[in-house]
Design a binder for these strands. Sequence first.
DNA 1: CCAGACGGTTAACGAGCGCTAACGGTGCTC
DNA 2: GAGCACCGTTAGCGCTCGTTAACCGTCTGG
Lengths: 219, 219
Amino acid sequence: MPSPDRPQHALPYPPSGSTAGTFDRGPGRNGRGRREQILTAAAELFARHGFHGVGIDDIGAAVGISGPALYRHFRSKDAMLGEMLVAISEHLLTGGQAKVDNAPDPQVALRELIRWHVDFALDAPALITVHMRDLANLTDPDRRRVRALQRRYVEVWVDTIRKTMPQVAEPAARAAAHGVFGLINSTPHSAHLDREQMAQLLSRMALAALTTPGVLPDE
Amino acid sequence: MPSPDRPQHALPYPPSGSTAGTFDRGPGRNGRGRREQILTAAAELFARHGFHGVGIDDIGAAVGISGPALYRHFRSKDAMLGEMLVAISEHLLTGGQAKVDNAPDPQVALRELIRWHVDFALDAPALITVHMRDLANLTDPDRRRVRALQRRYVEVWVDTIRKTMPQVAEPAARAAAHGVFGLINSTPHSAHLDREQMAQLLSRMALAALTTPGVLPDE
DNA sequence: CCAGACGGTTAACGAGCGCTAACGGTGCTC
DNA sequence: GAGCACCGTTAGCGCTCGTTAACCGTCTGG
């Protein structure tokens, strides 16, 4: 890892601050908490140093265990990234779809969609970063799954955009949606406003970019 | 490299399409062309597979030579990335600064700035991708240089934004600038429109996001 | 109370990869 | 035409890192 902030070496047993590890011993009753804890730590590290810039030992150290112990929870390092990105993509899609389904009209749907994505980006900047950057490091089947989910998520946006502005051509709507993702996902690069200000700013920029008359071309 | 499109193995000597390699033999008169050719090929590969996903042999193969031959032109693989990213950052900064300096007023300056960045993103999508994704893989000194150049480029934007809208607070302007970068840099993810349509769309989205009244908060 | 799953440990293997070493051919310059 | 800079080549070293092997304490269910 070339970057600074390399995680320290781990203590032989869970460090003081560890919440899990005391209540979830024994067969069967654990698993869930530990796996999530590992994925969270791994996401943070992947976001900072990139997938290949993080070693298995680093991830282990971040949760207070040693490298190879991770293989009790995941089949491989690739599987960690895969599970992480598939989970994000599914979360984004189902949440976005739900927002649209529950909205009374397309205008509200679009605002809700924007806010949904903004909230996610602000609450999980590490996941957003990894999601944007490390797609290329996925296994082929994992990448196919993630790509498929992404495509469906984009379609939700495209449909909503075209319902609010029926004269916009589909390719333009798709390109605009990608642009808005880029806009909103820029959040990890600028954390100088507080959360609510940032959410408002991004939401308004996104809405203005999409709905200002004359921006999206008529077909 | 996990992804498809892995470059084929190279022929022992420059392939048919090679432009350089025939005219620039001998001591002294070459160098420039070859280095650029290598950086271009490397940028393309880095963009597709990530810095660590590309081997020295892959880069060599892409320009028709074998891996270690690259060390006749670059000190190390890190140096290639470093030179690449420093060059981009300088190019972006000096070009952007020039646009602002030559503009008659801030409004025009902002439009020119947007168009400048859009053109660059559309003409060099590989460089943009690498620039966004592989900053973490730079050597510490290289990263410092790139970061410094980026900061200055952002300042050009922040100044221009605040000259057109003096009531906007600096942190908000900075966050907005980052957002617009994300918007414009999303271009590699959506190449479904032709160049000019894409340029217009991105420029208008960016301008609307920045200048629509009520979007950027008053201080 | 004991069988066994769970979830840790350390040691070590093997592959991949960046980089160096050693060497050779080509074409310019004096 | 001797010398040399340039720019290739192949062989191989050494390190990093993902992964597996072998082993062990702890807690639980029958």
